[in-house]
Design a protein around this nucleic acid. Sequence first.
DNA 1: TAAATTAAGTGTTAGAATTACATTTAAAAA
DNA 2: TTTTTAAATGTAATTCTAACACTTAATTTA
Lengths: 233, 233
Amino acid sequence: MEITSYQNADRIVVAIDCIIFGFDKEQLKLLLIKRDFEPERGHWSLMGGFLKGCEHLHQGAHRILYDLTGLKNIYLEQLHAFGEVTRDPVERTLSVAHYALIDIEAHAFELSEDYSASWFPIQELPDLIFDHNDMLKAALDRLQYKASHEAIGFELLPDKFTLPELQKLYECIYGRPLDKRNFRRRILSMDVLINTGEKEKSSSKKGAYLYTFDQSKFNKLQREGQNMDLNLY
Amino acid sequence: MEITSYQNADRIVVAIDCIIFGFDKEQLKLLLIKRDFEPERGHWSLMGGFLKGCEHLHQGAHRILYDLTGLKNIYLEQLHAFGEVTRDPVERTLSVAHYALIDIEAHAFELSEDYSASWFPIQELPDLIFDHNDMLKAALDRLQYKASHEAIGFELLPDKFTLPELQKLYECIYGRPLDKRNFRRRILSMDVLINTGEKEKSSSKKGAYLYTFDQSKFNKLQREGQNMDLNLY
DNA sequence: TAAATTAAGTGTTAGAATTACATTTAAAAA
DNA sequence: TTTTTAAATGTAATTCTAACACTTAATTTA
């Protein structure tokens, strides 16, 4: 019996769907698009498209995201392949979901006019098409997981950010308040933040110091397999 | 511009590759098969095949594993989709890798005669075809991760096992020795093991108590989102 | 049948990490 | 000058981690 006969192999449409998380200093949001084609025209959907025969998976994800939203050079990670036979009513497709984290304000201009994508607070999402609700659930779980075991989250903030902003972000991801003193101690002890000395004064009279993320120090720690658990409480 | 035109979508061969980990009370091993077809005839490979148009992804994984090895009803989890355009020299394929954990002795009879699959100690693996080395690397990372954050590992042992056997398994997964007293305390404090009262005497004169894994208690803890980190040292 | 052998099983303690908690400080506004 | 606002900071009780060595049960051997 020849299991692996290329001639007889079925060929399948491979879709890519992108779960785009954003943060605007207040809340965690999800980027959705209103479909202007059948099936499910007019309903909200994740950013999706089909993988081309000549494309790497991650190339395809970046292309689709760019075509639909104008977003480029963003952090994009593979989440999971969704393989239900009937997940798409038109034709059997396999969808490889990817997720991304972005700073909403920094990318506002790319998104604006031409694209029909909108941000929804994570607490007030419309029902999504196909199995996109499952994808979102899986992405949220992954985001929480990643945020507690790696120094993720910086992608969701501007290059310079204050510790109160960073704490707010983590509180959104975890959905609960964190102790300010313990949070600062923990984050700073990772030694991947640099205090720029500049202050951001829009949110208080005293002003909060602006920090930047030290990517090279972070990469070094990761290469060395350092424990990056945040253990936030 | 119509991104999502089903007519124009490329159709791609979707492969499934399975990384099968096994444990025989001594070593962690990997199940490989010698290819008897081109390309790469005669070289060692993961268990692989093509997804059918009518199959769920996980159905396909189970079918392929069964066809190639006779193994059924085993724990199989999706790992990652590998999407390099040139990963297979014959034709562009997307491969969704899955991994499994089994007790080698318990499944020995299913594997035996008819199949040309063999177990290789994880330390002495041959070079694998295509991107199978990358898949293996990713699966090992995932296994280590899972083993430290969930009570995985029981799948690799018989229904009844001793604590020294379980410790040996974890030592194989982590690739380093663990302290016996700390290991026992930690594992038992999870409260998912049941001492059967029976003793297993093949490995010592005194004999070690046989334990079983309390699946329902484990499921309950998982539902409640309990922290399952083992933090073994 | 006593002694030797073998691996299983068991507790303690110093040091580190976690967590809960309240006051001071800097700067602008009144 | 006083008030207001949010940022920044330290400590102590408790829990967890990790290092460490002897006793026990049962078989084997002398």
